[in-house]
Nucleic acid binder design. Structure first.
Length: 877
RNA sequence: GGGCUCGUAGCUCAGUUGGCUAGAGCGUUACGUUGACAUCGUAAAGGUCACCCGUUCGAGUCGGGUCGGGCCCACCA
């Protein structure tokens, strides 16, 4: 039974009910879809949002794009799985909760203790997670909630522990030292992106270690020079060639040092003296040089930012105090050559603003260069590079291939341990110098658990397979269950800013665990900026709450506004006007449907959808051709990830072709019911992945089935007929141009309502129109001759008629001007033709270009030649 | 410093491997409608496609350079 549609579409009245209807149907879960056994899978894992805060518009855009892909494939008989989840975001979450507790109670995490603090974090996580899941549902996202995951829930914890053990046993995970960013005040390490650089003025001191040392060095931190073991120069620097490889015993401010002169390309020749004192223990770059050259590493500074024991008068001093003392000593000895004030970047803690101290520290690492038997001798890095280079994994836009490969090729071992409390624990135990790795502590006494946790990207790197039942679904190298059916996934859709942080890690982790890629295609979306092109952020207060705009305009309008005008990898701007215009469109679609449904009865509505109705007039022919070519464009643009273009094509068809023209003709011409119902059903099916709510709401008013699982009708063979039908374009322009002609002709008199003319002029009722418009005799003859033609009308013929009509009606066209225009056009065509001929005679082009391009060029040439003939004829040549 | 990217109408952006008179939405103006449509329709105005040079029969599109935004990475010891 058909239900009456209201005059205005009010999203709030429908959305929640429809979401419930979808969810209750069970079809979000691909296991419940009625599909043949061999149906291909289509899997997307949702990039798990951080549970630090509620979602913003960027997330909404992500959801809109992914839901579009999933719904489209679900309709088209794929085993479509979209897997939801959230990320524990270790550091970010811990900071958030620490701040919250501190502002509420004035207590730090140390005051609470590890256990109580983690309970607080869990409370926070539960709250935000509920908010986030609610927001996701409001967007209409068709996620399979039965598979909901969290990077720190129990199945994921088991997976992470197992991964750590496997990697450790394979020698991929090892414990080693490296320079970390240490905040002496917070007593914790900082990730590279938590370090903030601040410009400050500092003194650059140039001096010699002692009078017998041949080279002067420059530094802003003389106190660290107590730990120097080398001086590095650029290998191309002629000044120092003779010293390279030599070793010197020096006494620097009372400390005996052994300094080797080494060559390294990282040294800039024109900075300072072009010679760099290498302090392996207190500079990341120097550490690398020391590793490369096997230099000893002397620790000078301790975890409190004080000079360590064993440095005589300097021991126990702060770095600043030690610096003053060293400088004074150098001045006294006459070793100081130059002191100049410069501006440099100071590394600071993002939390407390204090300068950070690079310190060596024992950490857990993943060896990215270790050859692995399970990867046929390739290292993780090599496997991850090969997958992209050989095209197994593709990026969109393609330019991110380069960024990925550049980053991968320069990748060093990945430090995975973090000195924070919230996160996956490290399954390692220590007793003195002994290390044991395993989930349970060894039976013997005295073993102490590793206190650190894992980098959050360790667990999110496993996201594509930890969510599909790994490791239980992976026995003896063979995938079972969900892993067989859904891995590798088809598409990873995410923001380009986490390409290196996340995407690259997923590739390595998947190759290690399963020996296969995690996904085939990576679609990278841009960032949603505010109206002025600025990033949205809490501190600026320019963020937009998706729930608010959904409440105001409906989820469909928000989705469509985020999909249209957004291209992969490019940022797009948010504006409320844009949402408003999409809201208006959705209402238009509602009213188109309402208009059609009001003119139909129940029987016709049950017409099978895969029966192409018969076209009885030019306008029928035209609109069906447009519908089917729109559908074709839509399918190709969707498979090319050209979402914006897909939506625009459909939008243009719906509004400019269907509503503005065809529906108007049906107000005059009756008997279009079967065509209208065919168009309406197809229209709703095609729009559904973009704007699921309104389309489902309309569909439900006259169907018992769910639009969500309504397949696109099979019309392939018919499609070609309509697309190749040359009448389809002509009819439209013919009508339009006729209207213009009529209006121009009658500008002095009263004008017939344009839309009536539009309708009348196309069909059998044109007689009526013509009798009312005696002025347009030329048009009449034209129409009559066209109507008399059998078969599809010739577009060119229509154009010729129209030109005649134009000239006749206006009487104002200067024949000379027209001739001049034609001459110019002729000139143009001649140029085109000779160019195309030359092109086609070029053997290189014929050999190298794909066949369809060559054919297209040939077709073009043929068209131009025909056109040229016509112009020649009208010029009387 | 290295790399990437963008510059098209007042604003936000399309422009599908170079092709006929460069498009859309919003905004502006005029006229017409208000029995599918918080309207809607028809039209108008508005662009040296940042600039220069080159390749080509032909450049918004390809190459080189200049200017101006944005992003990423590295980082001055």
């Amino acid at each position: 039974m058909k239900k009456e549609l209201a005059k205005i579409y009010e999203p709030a009245l429908f959305e929640d009910n429809i979401y419930r209807l979808w969810e209750d149907s069970g079809f979000f879960n691909p296991d419940n879809l009625d599909l043949p056994a061999g149906a291909p899978s289509y899997t997307i894992v949702l990039p798990p949002p951080n549970i630090t805060a509620k979602l913003h518009l960027g997330h909404s855009a992500m959801l809109a794009i992914e839901d579009l892909m999933i719904r489209y494939h679900r309709q088209n008989s794929y085993r479509a799985l979209w897997l939801p989840g959230t990320d524990h975001a270790a550091i970010a979450t811990q900071n958030m909760v620490e701040k919250k507790i501190f502002s509420e109670t004035g207590k730090t995490r140390h005051d609470l203790g590890r256990k109580v603090f983690l309970e607080e974090v869990d409370k926070f996580v539960a709250e935000t997670q509920a908010t986030i899941l609610h927001q996701i549902r409001k967007m209409g996202a068709s996620l399979d909630w039965s598979r909901l995951a969290f990077t720190l829930d129990s199945p994921r914890q088991q997976a992470v522990q197992r991964m750590f053990l496997d990697m450790y046993n394979e020698g991929v995970i090892y414990r080693g030292e490296r320079i970390v960013n240490w905040c002496p005040r917070c007593h914790s390490t900082l990730a590279d992106d938590e370090v903030e650089y601040k410009e400050q003025s500092a003194f650059l001191y140039t001096f010699k270690y002692d009078p017998n040392f041949p080279i002067a060095i420059s530094t802003t931190r003389p106190e660290t020079k107590l730990g120097d073991t080398a001086v590095a120069v650029n290998p191309k620097d002629e000044r120092y060639q003779q010293y390279i490889g030599q070793e010197y015993e020096v006494n620097f401010c009372g400390q005996d040092l052994r300094i080797k002169i080494i060559a390294d390309y990282n040294v800039e020749m024109d900075f300072g003296t072009g010679a760099l004192g290498v302090t392996p223990a207190h500079s990341a770059v120097d550490w690398q040089m020391a590793e490369a050259q096997s230099l000893p590493k002397i620790k000078v500074i301790n975890e409190d930012g004080l000079i360590r024991e064993g440095f005589g008068e300097f021991s126990g001093l702060s770095v600043i105090a030690a610096r003053e003392k060293v400088v004074a000593s150098l001045r006294n000895q006459g070793l100081m050559i130059k002191e100049e004030e410069i501006v440099n970047n100071l590394s600071c803690c993002y939390r407390c603003d204090n300068p950070i101290e690079p310190l060596p520290s024992r950490q857990w690492f993943i060896a990215v260069d270790k050859p692995l038997a399970r990867l046929q001798g390739k290292s993780l890095k090599e496997a991850a590079i090969a997958a992209v280079r050989e095209g197994e994994i593709k990026f969109l836009p393609e330019r991110f291939n380069k960024r990925y490969l550049d980053w991968m090729e320069n990748l060093h071992d990945w430090c995975i341990s973090r000195q924070i409390w919230f996160g996956h624990s490290i399954p390692a135990w220590y007793r003195g110098e002994e290390i044991y790795v395993g989930e349970e502590a060894p039976a013997a006494e005295g073993w102490i658990k590793d206190n650190d946790t894992l980098d959050t990207w360790f667990s999110s790197g496993m996201w594509t397979f930890s969510t599909l039942g790994w490791p239980d679904n992976f026995k003896d190298g063979i995938k079972t269950g969900d892993l067989t059916r859904f891995h590798p996934t088809q598409v990873l859709e995410t923001g380009y800013e986490i390409l290196t942080l996340w995407v690259s890690r997923m590739v390595m982790m998947s190759f290690f665990a399963l020996g296969e890629k995690p996904f085939s295609q990576v679609y990278l979306h841009g960032t949603i900026l505010d109206k002025n092109g600025k990033k949205m952020s809490k501190s600026k207060g320019n963020g937009v709450d998706p729930l608010e705009v959904i409440a105001k305009y409906g989820a469909d309008a928000v989705r469509l506004s985020l999909l249209m005008g957004a291209t992969p990898g490019n940022d797009s701007r948010y504006s409320e006007e844009k949402i408003e215009s999409k809201r208006n469109f959705i209402n238009k679609l509602w009213n188109i449907s309402r208009f059609i449904l009001n003119n139909l009865d129940d029987e016709i509505l049950s017409t099978p959808i895969d029966v192409l109705p018969e076209a009885k007039s030019l306008s029928d022919n035209w609109i069906l051709g447009e519908l089917l070519s729109t559908r074709k464009t839509l399918a190709t643009s969707l498979s090319d990830f050209n979402f914006s273009f897909a939506a625009e094509t459909l939008y243009d068809f719906t509004w400019n072709k269907l509503a503005d023209w065809y529906l108007e003709t049906t107000k005059i011409e009756k008997g279009k019911e079967t065509i209208l119902v065919f168009i309406l059903k197809n229209l709703l099916i095609m729009w559904h992945p973009f704007i699921p709510y309104v389309t489902e709401a309309i569909w439900q008013s006259f169907n018992n089935t769910l639009l969500m699982v309504e397949p696109w009708p099979k019309l392939a063979n018919k499609l070609d007929y309509w697309i190749n039908n040359p009448g389809k374009e002509a009819d439209f322009s013919f009508v339009q141009e006729a209207i213009i002609a009529i209006r121009n002709a009658r500008s002095e008199n009263k004008v017939e309502p344009a839309r009536k003319l539009q309708a009348l002029v196309t069909g059998p009722k044109s007689e009526l129109l013509l009798s009312q418009a005696p002025l347009i005799k030329g048009l009449r003859t034209g129409i009559e001759s066209l109507l008399a033609t059998d078969g599809p009308p010739d577009g060119q013929a229509i154009k010729v008629v129209l030109r005649d009509v134009d000239i006749y009606l206006l009487g104002a066209v200067d024949p000379e001007k027209e001739k001049a225009r034609l001459r110019k056009e002729k000139e143009n065509l001649l140029n085109l033709i000779s160019g195309l001929r030359a092109h086609l005679e070029n053997q290189e082009f014929i050999d190298r270009a794909p066949a369809h391009i060559v054919q297209a060029e040939k077709d073009k040439l043929a068209r131009y030649e025909i056109e040229l003939e016509k112009i020649r004829a009208s010029l009387g040549v």
